[in-house]
């Protein structure tokens, strides 16, 4: 309705665009992380000054500004706890989705950060506090992307 109001013929109007296409780099730390995923590994890093483990790993500790180097990386186990979740029933344009997308925030064991990703279980099987693990795409399909993880599933 509002849109139609905007297009009244007696008001001179025209369409324009703010064209934006970006090419992002993963960054120094981001690349370390994604190359780990490609190998089916979770690489986190540890700031000894703050006793804090970052997943994904960072180039620096944002609390104390210590530089976190390649040697500060450590592999963590593929296991975590679901902190929260939601079912998304609409897409970004507001259209109804046939199958809701389920996303959750997971605290991987041995880390101090939240990790957001899709959940693969049925809605009725999901509960906060459940133990989950990542399901990786088959090795030949991994390309160093956050989507090398298909999603997380409940461990029973």
């Amino acid at each position: 309705m509002e849109q139609k109001e905007n297009r009244k013929k007696e008001i001179i109007h025209f369409f324009g665009q703010l064209p934006v296409e970006s090419l992002y780099t993963a960054g120094i730390a981001g690349e370390r992380f994604l190359l780990g995923l490609k190998e089916g590994k979770f690489l986190a890093n540890y700031c000894p000054d703050c006793d804090f483990v970052f997943l994904p790993p960072k180039l620096y500790c944002e609390f104390c500004f210590r530089e976190l180097k390649e040697e500060d990386l450590k592999e963590i186990e593929n296991k975590g706890i679901l902190l929260s979740y939601t079912f998304t029933h609409i897409d970004t344009n507001g259209n109804r989705l046939e199958n809701p997308i389920i996303v959750g925030v997971i605290k991987m064991n041995g880390t101090d950060t939240g990790f957001v990703h899709k959940l693969l279980n049925k809605i009725e099987d999901i509960e906060i506090g459940m133990e989950v693990e990542a399901v990786f795409a088959p090795k030949e399909r991994r390309r160093g992307s956050i989507n090398d993880i298909v999603g997380f599933q409940r461990i029973d």
Binding site: A26, G27, I28, E31, L59, Y60, F65, E67
Partner: peptide, 16 residues
């Protein structure tokens, strides 16, 4: 011309 670092990482290097 093109940094491998993210914007955050560039900001960090300068600030540090």
């Amino acid at each position: 011309r093109r940094a491998k670092e993210t914007g955050k990482e560039l900001a960090y290097y300068a600030a540090k």
